[in-house]
Simulated scan of single mutants.
Amino acid sequence: MVIDKTTGRGCAWSIASKTITKKLIAEGIVDKTIFIKAWKNGYDLLRVTDCGENCAYLMSQRTKELTGQPLWAPSFIAPEIWGKAVSRFQNYGKLGRNVEMYLLPEMSEYLRSIPDIELISMTREFLIKHGVVNKPIRQHAGKTYYFNESEVYSLDEQSQMFPYEGRMKFNTFQVRGKPASTEMSGSKPRHGLKSG
């Protein structure tokens, strides 16, 4: 399955990957071995390392012998889906990025089963956390659009709150330091935050 990041649902799925990552951390993935790769002279144990504030990286640890300890697996993901995804996880990568790139495509049925209202709620929470309220979202023909304190999509017709930036016709709100898949398009919202 290809997740189309240009659609509202695709954006919500990308945000859902962050929710899944938090669930994995909450269930105890940190410092657990999630995959073993055998080599001629030993094994690489793929583990998740905590970097604080819901930031976790994958790190491998080389060993000559196995301890016999079972691999960690989450309770809310089918074992065959989890096993296939973690076999492709990238060492030294962020857990969240690996979830988005390798786990989400294997979870298409789970993602399709998430009710729209839950996707809307996740998207709303994500946007508010990243500062969408009272930030210009889009500017066109001297008009600026933004979400006000009541989360209503509003028009600053004379650009009194936000100076009009000339020929700029695209959104000005962006989630900084995140993959492009989490940036918002300049179109008016269909769900979640209210239009007014």
Rank of each mutant, 00 (worst) to 15 (best):
Glu106Tyr: 02
Val99Gln: 01
Phe126Glu: 01
Gln90Ser: 08
Gly42Ser: 08
Gln61Glu: 13
Arg47Asp: 02
Val86Met: 04
Ala78Ile: 12
Trp82Pro: 02
Glu100Ile: 03
Leu111Cys: 04
Arg62Leu: 06
Thr49Gly: 04
Phe89Lys: 08
Ser113Tyr: 01
Leu66Pro: 07
Ile81Glu: 07
Ser108Asp: 13
Gln90Ala: 09
Asn98Gly: 02
Thr49Tyr: 06
Leu58Ala: 03
Phe126Val: 00
Trp72Val: 05
Asp44Gly: 12
Met101Glu: 08
Ala73Arg: 15
Ser75Phe: 10
Ala85His: 04
Asn91Glu: 15
Leu71Gly: 08
Ser60Met: 14
Ile117Glu: 14
Leu46Arg: 04
Asn54Lys: 11
Pro79Ser: 14
Gly68Cys: 11
Ser121Pro: 01
Asn98Cys: 09
Gly93His: 14
Ile81Ala: 09
Ala73Trp: 03
Glu80Gln: 15
Lys84Asp: 06
Asn41Glu: 07
Gly52Asn: 06
Lys84Tyr: 05
Ile77Ser: 02
Pro70Cys: 09
Asn54Trp: 10
Leu119Met: 13
Lys64His: 07
Asn98Trp: 00
Tyr57Arg: 15
Leu103Trp: 01
Leu103Gln: 02
Lys84Met: 05
Asn91Phe: 07
Arg97Val: 14
Ile114Trp: 00
Ala73Asp: 05
Pro79Arg: 12
Ile120Cys: 09
Met107His: 00
Thr67Glu: 10
Phe76Arg: 11
Leu95Ile: 06
Arg47Thr: 10
Val48Ser: 02
Asn41Ser: 06
Gly68Pro: 08
Asn41Met: 04
Cys55Met: 05
Gly68Glu: 11
Thr67Asn: 11
Leu104Pro: 01
Thr49Asp: 09
Pro115Tyr: 00
Leu46Gln: 05
Cys51Lys: 08
Leu58Met: 13
Arg62Trp: 11
Tyr57Trp: 14
Asp116Ala: 11
Pro70Tyr: 08
Gly83Asn: 15
Leu104Met: 07
Ala85Arg: 03
Glu53Gly: 10
Arg62Thr: 12
Gly93Lys: 14
Thr49Arg: 11
Leu46Trp: 04
Met101Pro: 00
Asn54Met: 11
Leu119His: 03
Ala78Gln: 15
Ile117Ala: 14
Met122Val: 00
Ala73Asn: 11
Glu100Asp: 10
Leu45Cys: 05
Met101Ser: 09
Ala78Phe: 10
Gly42Asn: 09
Gly83Arg: 11
Gln61Lys: 14
Gly68Lys: 09
Glu65Phe: 13
Gly83Leu: 06
Pro74Phe: 07
Pro115Trp: 01
Ile81Lys: 13
Trp82Glu: 03
Glu53Ile: 13
Met59Tyr: 10
Val99Ser: 02
Ser75Tyr: 07
Ser121Ile: 03
Arg97His: 13
Pro105Lys: 04
Leu103Ser: 01
Leu66Ala: 10
Leu66Phe: 09
Arg124Ser: 12
Met107Pro: 00
Ala73His: 15
Leu45Glu: 05
Thr123Ala: 11
Ser108Leu: 09
Lys84Leu: 06
Gly52Ile: 05
